[in-house]
Simulated scan of single mutants.
Amino acid sequence: MDRPLMPKATAVWLVENTGLTFEQIAEFTGLHTLEIKGIADGEVNAGVRGLDPIGAGMLTRQEIDRAVKDPNARLRLQRSIADTKLGPKKKEPRYTPLSKRQDRPDAIAWLLRHHPELAEQQICKLLGTTKNTIQQVRDRTHWKSQDIRPRDPVLLGLCAQLELDDAVARARIANPKAVRTEPLPAEGEELPTFE
């Protein structure tokens, strides 16, 4: 069960402003019953200002009234309004540490060889690179093209296996004709180009 953001301040407010039992407050906030009794006696957290859980959107007045009428009832934390109206947060651009940036061309070459069904935009999103870099690796005009060895981006730490699997699955659904049926090219051979 989720807990309130500031459990002690919430407990102070509930003790001072409601008729809830110590057990109900302790169960809701995740604190021990003796600590709630100490708050009520003024021995624990003296001087702590209470946090109104109704104003913070954690509880409703009806939920508190329901729990006051039934001492065995448990309080339920309300879903945040921000979670329901705003939806998930937009992802930030992927940051790759300096020590791993030199491995990007190797990961791009691996993806071009093993997963040609991936679109350039998917590779950009997966590795945090640009379409220009992908094209340079594909055409072997990249400044590091002599030293590029195709290596798995998951093992290099540039993306997670779940992210790679998800991108490949989406690409196969979007473009089933691009799924490889012929064997992979040998080490020295050219990489295939799919548009």
Rank of each mutant, 00 (worst) to 15 (best):
Q78F: 04
D166G: 12
N72H: 08
Q24K: 10
T84Y: 03
H115T: 06
D83L: 15
F22L: 06
Q121F: 01
Q161N: 13
L20R: 02
S99Q: 04
V179Q: 14
L59Q: 01
D147E: 14
A11Q: 07
Q78C: 14
K90G: 08
P93A: 14
E23H: 08
Q24H: 11
T18N: 04
I173N: 03
L164W: 04
R79K: 10
A9M: 10
K100C: 03
A186Y: 07
K131E: 12
E23T: 15
V48L: 15
T96I: 15
D65E: 14
P150H: 05
A11F: 03
E63P: 12
D103N: 12
P183H: 02
A169M: 10
K125H: 00
Q121N: 12
I81C: 06
L126C: 01
K69T: 12
G188L: 09
L127N: 05
P150D: 04
R74F: 09
H142A: 14
I134H: 00
L59F: 02
L14H: 01
L155A: 15
F28V: 12
V44W: 01
A171C: 08
Q136V: 06
G87M: 05
T60D: 04
K125N: 01
S80R: 11
A186R: 11
T133Y: 03
A169H: 10
L34E: 12
R170C: 10
P4V: 10
T96Q: 05
P150T: 13
R94L: 15
Q122I: 02
A107P: 02
A46E: 11
I25V: 13
I173E: 07
D70M: 09
P116T: 14
E189G: 03
R149Q: 06
A167L: 02
A178N: 10
L77Y: 03
A56P: 03
L75T: 09
G128M: 07
R113P: 08
